[in-house]
């Protein structure tokens, strides 16, 4: 246990003599600091471009996700072609670029969408065509959700990834399924 002794002697000065710091110590500390920054960068890159586990909050996806205390697995390696109607897509809010939000994809470019079946934001008979390069998204909790009904279709460029499953709470851990039924096919 010689190394432990050395560490202890360096951290807590047990001898009477003061420890003399050499230039090599400063250099070592600098390299250790740089390595920690490097680790933080790697961590950030993985979360930003590969995926990870995230905590979610908010009532807009209610039966699918609780208001808080849930950990969700996110996949950031998605292409537009791989997304389908019914996927839980994550994107930057068009109202505030610092906020990430999760909604369900309802329509792709060319689809004809009923703007608001509940009639809250628009008369329930109003229909629009989703423009090129955009998707139509909606929260599962239609009565408490700011989604495409309010801010319109969102461009592909805002899309970050998609939620693929829940890991916490453990008894409700599951893969998210596409709860989407096509009526005529």
């Amino acid at each position: 246990m010689n190394w432990l002794h050395n560490v202890r002697r360096r951290v807590i000065n047990t001898s009477r003599k003061p420890i003399k710091l050499e230039w090599s110590d400063a250099r070592k500390a600098f390299v250790i600091g740089l390595k920690m920054v490097n680790m933080a960068c790697a961590w950030h890159l993985v979360f930003e471009h590969v995926g990870g586990i995230r905590a979610v909050s908010g009532p807009s996806m209610l039966p699918t996700m609780e208001v808080e205390d849930e950990l969700i697995v996110e996949n950031r390696m998605v292409s537009i072609q791989s997304l389908q109607r019914g996927d839980l897509v994550t994107f930057m809010s068009p109202l505030d670029p610092t906020r990430g939000v999760c909604k369900r994809i309802i329509g792709f470019p060319g689809d004809i969408i009923c703007v608001d079946p509940t009639g809250k934001y628009a008369p329930s008979t109003e229909h629009v065509v989703v423009p090129k390069g955009h998707i139509w998204v909606s929260g599962d909790n239609m009565s408490w959700s700011r989604d495409s009904r309010e801010y319109g279709p969102i461009p592909f460029g805002l899309i970050k990834g998609k939620f693929i499953g829940r890991v916490w709470p453990l008894r409700r851990a599951a893969w998210f399924s596409r709860n989407f039924q096509y009526i005529d096919e």
Binding site: P97, G133, P155, F156, G157
Partner: peptide
């Protein structure tokens, strides 16, 4: 920093095709 100023030249993803 999220600093957006009028008059800045910026690179953005096109809303048509990203």
């Amino acid at each position: 920093e999220r600093k957006y100023n009028r008059g800045d030249i910026v690179a953005l993803k096109s809303p048509y095709d990203a």
